[in-house]
Design a protein around this nucleic acid. Structure first.
Length: 589
RNA sequence: GGCCCGGUAGUUCAGCAGGUUAGAAUGUCGGCUUGUCAGGCCGAAGGUCGCGGGUUCGAAUCCCGUCCGGGCCGCCA
């Protein structure tokens, strides 16, 4: 790597003891200036490291006076000699040497930054977002973006070596009512018409398969106009992949290798082989379709054990489940109330009870009166609780209840510090139901998307029991985060039509929405399927970051705004006119 | 759209069962200091307590509204 330029001979991270005696020119930002009457130390910083520069009034009085004017984040150029330090700093790679300055040029001064640009800044999120370019100057942010770069490069190389072609697809496309809300772009040339930005290149990648490019990938920006979360941005990056002549295992095996290699190469971490957990098992044991399997606290179905004791809440519930809480026997009443309050506010589930197990096989809790000591004791053992633990029992409809227990499981584990740190556990969740029933609209809707293939063995159920049909769909979950998802697609027109019928999509509607695609499917569509990674999420997980904002250079804030640009913003009346748009005043805040 | 947390010095926060002149740390400014590396010591300046209204003799503190930021639910095929 050549880092020498018109301004410098070396970077601030490369000089060592072996360079002592060399005359060098360095440029960078003055991160810290330490003035001790008679001597000035400057920590000169660039993205490669920090090198200490020393000015001494005994060597050069004028230069010393000049150096005293340097302030934080000034851009300076220093010429001098590399020499061994009198006092070495073992904390930095260049800590054994320093530059004895003989010439100083202040290339640019700097306003005082509104927060310190240190490893651990004193700045809050809001301020750092507004001055993002300064936050990005901090070492942790630089490490994150450099890691992101490496993961991008790794991904491109790995997939290319595997024969995947990086192909691009358009950003200005057509809006479809399915899925997330579209971001929309008004057309100047066609009054009243709009482009939409893609939520993902889903249909395009399938068209590539029809076109015969049998392994495709793209690292691509996707856009969804929905509310934000710590792990959700309105624009985000996917590693989008599609393969032809494959079934589920081909895709899963390929991308298990990809992820395993990425962790090894970039983190030197050896992932265990990915288990493949059916959706139903994930829900039953973990109360989630993205189970965090780094720790236990598995949910147990105790419906049969508690029914028939004359307690209506249990007898009338579709499902009763138990969640063990390690060390729960010594928790305060207040804690339990908090958790109960938390889950009741989030999920409308009728029953919440807990049983503590303090003394030798002796249970405590109001539920004992109902179930009796013997049954309660059996429940504790069946739920894999131990002495000193407690269990939470919830009752209600299966999916709601088990999800509520799953939510509690995660929250309690975080609160009680049960989740092991510095561990990665990856798995595929498979065998998702193809459809889910929409209560409000009284119809089936696709769990994944309408082109997802049913399991071969379940095709006959399409006519009789659609809710039981499993899909060739899969998610990759790492540490409880959905990192990737995909499916094998339907390549049989008859089945595709049947799915549309089931979804209540008339031929006309289907034609109008996906006409070009349905047409394309008729020209020799190969069996195909794929997967798409949330690249920001994958990066964040690997770095142990809590939010994907930490791995995106210029993210939107929680309200979907860019606080640095102050966007979105109004446009001029001229622009509006050109786009044939009128703002309805009553809608404007 | 709903719930929760926060908004006080440049910055991060404390103060909030109403009561004298709103504090700390850090940063900033001035002085001293020749081996620092989160430099040290001495001194100083620095506030529309987010905004608006209300209760009260009196509000940073209580109430209502509103704006901003963060977390969650809904939403995200």
């Amino acid at each position: 790597m050549n880092t020498k330029t018109a301004y410098r001979t070396h970077t601030c991270g490369e000089l060592r003891l072996s360079d002592v005696g060399k005359r060098v020119v360095l440029v960078g930002w003055a991160r810290r200036v330490r003035t001790l009457g008679g001597v000035v130390f400057v920590d000169l910083w660039d993205r490669y490291g920090i090198t200490q520069v020393i000015f001494n009034q005994q060597w050069d009085k004028d230069l010393y006076e000049q150096a005293k004017k340097i302030d934080r984040e000034f851009v300076i150029q220093v010429e001098g000699e590399v020499r061994e330090r009198e006092n070495k700093n073992p904390n930095i790679p260049t800590g054994e040497i320093e530059i004895k300055a003989s010439k100083l040029t202040i290339l640019n001064i700097s306003k005082l930054p509104p927060f310190t640009l240190e490893e651990h800044t004193d700045g809050g999120e809001e301020l750092r977002a507004k001055y993002r370019y300064l936050d990005l100057r901090r070492p942790p942010m630089q490490r994150n973006l450099i890691f992101r770069h490496k993961l991008l490069q790794f991904t491109r190389n790995w997939l290319s070596k595997e024969g995947f072609l990086e192909l691009e697809t358009p950003f200005l496309i057509k809006s479809t009512p399915e899925g997330a809300r579209d971001f929309v772009v008004p057309s100047r040339l066609y009054p009243g018409h709009f482009f939409a930005l893609p939520q993902s290149p889903q249909l395009f990648k399938q068209l590539f398969m029809i076109s015969g490019y049998d392994k495709y990938f793209q690292i691509v920006r996707c856009f969804r106009d929905e509310d934000l979360r710590a792990d959700r941005q309105p624009e985000f990056t996917q590693i989008d992949c599609e393969m032809s002549f494959v079934d589920e295992n081909d895709v899963l095996n390929t991308f298990e290798r990809f992820v395993t290699d990425a962790f090894k190469e970039l983190l030197n971490y050896d992932l265990e082989p990915f288990i493949r957990m059916p959706y139903e098992e994930a829900m039953n044991k973990y109360g989630s379709d993205k189970p965090d399997v780094r720790f236990g606290m598995l949910i147990t179905d105790i419906t049969k054990d508690v029914q028939g004791h004359g307690f209506k809440v249990f007898d009338n519930s579709e499902y009763v489940g138990a969640l063990p809480v390690p060390g729960g026997a010594t928790l305060s009443r207040k804690k339990w109330d908090q958790w109960e309050e938390y889950i009741k506010q989030m999920a409308d589930v009728p029953g919440f009870f807990y049983v503590t197990w303090k003394e030798e096989l002796k249970a405590k809790g109001p539920i004992i009166k109902i179930l009796g000591e013997e049954t309660t004791r059996e429940l504790l053992i069946k739920s894999k609780a131990q002495q000193g633990d407690a269990i939470i029992i919830m009752a209600g409809p299966w999916e709601k209840t088990v999800s509520a227990l799953g939510t509690l499981r995660m929250n309690i584990a975080k609160e009680l510090n049960i989740i092991p740190k510095d561990t990665f556990k990856a798995l595929f969740v498979v065998d998702f139901p193809l459809f889910s029933w929409n209560e409000e609209e009284n119809r089936w809707e696709p769990n994944h998307h309408p082109f997802t293939s049913p399991k071969d063995t379940d095709i006959h159920l399409l006519d009789t029991d659609p809710g039981q049909v499993k899909a060739k769909a899969y998610d990759l979950v790492i540490n409880g985060v959905e990192v990737a998802g995909g499916s094998i697609r339907i390549h049989d027109q008859k089945i595709q039509q049947k799915i549309f019928d089931l979804l209540g999509l008339s031929r006309e509607e289907a034609q109008q929405k996906f006409g070009f695609f349905l047409e394309a499917l008729q020209y020799g569509t190969p069996p195909h399927g794929g997967i798409a990674f949330g690249f920001d999420r994958l990066t964040a997980i690997m770095l142990g970051e809590e939010t994907i904002r930490s791995v995106i250079a210029f993210p939107k804030n929680k309200s979907g705004r860019d606080p640095m640009l102050d966007a979105p913003a109004p446009i001029s009346p001229e622009q509006l006119k050109e786009l044939h748009l009128k703002i309805v005043e009553s809608d404007r805040e």
